[in-house]
Computed example of a mutant assay.
Amino acid sequence: MTLLVDVRHRLGSFAVDVSFRSESGVTALFGRSGSGKTSVMRIIAGLDRPDDGRIELDGDVLVDTKKRILVPKHRRRFGYVFQEARLFPHLSVRQNLNYGRWFAPKAERRENFDRILDLLGIEHLLERRPAKLSGGEKQRVAIGRALLSSPRMLLMDEPLAALDDARKAELLPYLERLRDDADIPIIYVSHSVAEVARLASRIVLMNNGRVEAVGEAGQILGHPSIAVAVDRRETGALLEGRLHAYDSDQRLASIMLKSAQLVVPLAEELPTGRPVRLHIPARDVMLATARPEHISALNILPGTVVTLMSGTDGMCDVEVDCGGDTIQARLTEVSVRRLDILPGKHVFAVIKTVALRL
């Protein structure tokens, strides 16, 4: 499915003016708190009416202010998952899930109850009440309830924001399964680089109510414009490759990129050939003008400097092309001058293995 959004809306002194296209997979509305992500999500869901604009899903016009078209939210058939699970406390998990099925017309109920239980790993929770669930379990049930309404699209508004790190780690694998197995597009609101790097196919980068950039996840997370959404210390490169081999004794995986190969810690073996992603923070990359020897780092990639961008904090972001894979390094301006780092210079990117995570 293709979602087309072109809307303008004023909320007091804050104005939203966005235009973007979303297709299959996970499209992340990404930006700092207050950038307008949730406002756009509410307009798409039909919870708020835009002052001007048009929203279309696969040729089905949901909003057209010029033609006075406004499809009510209950007829849009979108599933919505909020920051808080919002389960009915007096109902069991089974009853909460079945509540979602009541919203799907019988002729259009395509989601199998048992399949959703398996997808989200919640079969053993069916007879519990929400008060007996962890935060991650509540969110999995909330996602199941939304899916059982057989939605045409799933809207997820920072579903991990209210969880601690342990619960986030628990829920993320289920969100990956949902992305890979569900046959509906997902709009995912987040201000977390880690979540977006792991889940998103496409990113709509937002800043002050406007779209700063739109593109593939790797393209946007590695672009200088990402600075409007994250602290510079969080920026880096998102690389895609395939699992080439696994050493079970050392618990290290070999990842084949476009032309380079990286060694990455991996606690459990995964099938070889499996596509994987790596987010490499720029702060964890060092540059050398000669291949270093007798160091602990296992990943040393030859490359060529492409661009340099100096900040106001005495730091410089250096973009290096390593055989078709772009890696970013954050250096002090002192180091840049001392090593005479300039576009076109041949360097070696040194990446600490412990800094990498699939």
Score class of each variant (00 low, 15 high):
Phe78Asn: 09
Asp157Lys: 07
Val7Glu: 00
Val141His: 01
Ser35Leu: 04
Gly241Ile: 03
Ser259Met: 12
His294Ala: 15
Gln261Pro: 03
Ser201Ala: 13
Ser24Ile: 11
Leu125Ala: 00
Glu234Tyr: 06
Gln219Leu: 11
Ser259Asn: 14
Leu148Cys: 06
Phe14Thr: 11
Asp247Val: 04
Arg198Met: 10
Arg129Glu: 00
Glu293Phe: 09
Met206Phe: 12
Phe103Ser: 12
Tyr246Ala: 08
Asp114Asn: 12
Ile203His: 05
Pro159Glu: 09
Ala213Met: 15
Glu195Pro: 00
Leu342Lys: 15
Leu239Gln: 00
Ile255Trp: 05
Val189Gly: 01
Thr353Trp: 01
Ala355Asp: 09
Ile186Glu: 01
Thr2Phe: 08
Val211Ile: 10
Glu212Trp: 01
Ser134Lys: 04
Asp52Tyr: 10
Arg76Ala: 01
Val230Cys: 06
Met153Glu: 01
Pro89Asn: 05
Asp60Gly: 05
Ala288Ser: 14
Gly36Lys: 00
Ala182Lys: 02
Leu47Lys: 06
Asp183Asn: 14
Ile203Pro: 05
Glu216Ile: 07
Thr289Val: 15
Ser149Lys: 07
Arg179Thr: 04
Val63Met: 10
Ala245Asp: 15
Gly46Asn: 09
Ile55Asn: 02
Glu212His: 05
Gly218Ser: 08
Val61Tyr: 06
Lys352His: 11
Ser92Ala: 05
Ile226Cys: 04
Thr304His: 06
Lys168Ala: 01
Arg42Cys: 06
Ala197Thr: 02
Arg177Trp: 02
Pro173Gly: 01
Val18Phe: 00
Val334Leu: 14
Ser149Thr: 08
Val334Cys: 07
Val318Phe: 02
Ala85Asp: 01
Leu257Thr: 07
Val40His: 00
Arg283Gly: 05
Glu111Lys: 03
Pro281Glu: 08
Ile69Gln: 09
Val306Pro: 06
Leu70Asp: 14
Met286Trp: 09
Arg179Ile: 02
Thr27Ser: 11
Arg115Asp: 15
Asp6Pro: 00
Asn208Ser: 15
Leu257Asp: 04
Asp181His: 14
Arg177Lys: 14
Arg86Lys: 13
Val318Arg: 00
Leu257Cys: 08
Val263Ile: 15
His9Leu: 09
Leu301Met: 11
Pro72Ala: 07
Leu126Pro: 01
Tyr174Gly: 03
Gly46Glu: 10
His346Ile: 12
Val306Ile: 15
Glu84Tyr: 12
Leu356Glu: 04
Leu119Val: 02
Arg128Gln: 05
Lys345Cys: 06
Met315Asp: 07
Met206Asp: 01
Phe103His: 13
Ala131Gly: 08
Val196Cys: 06
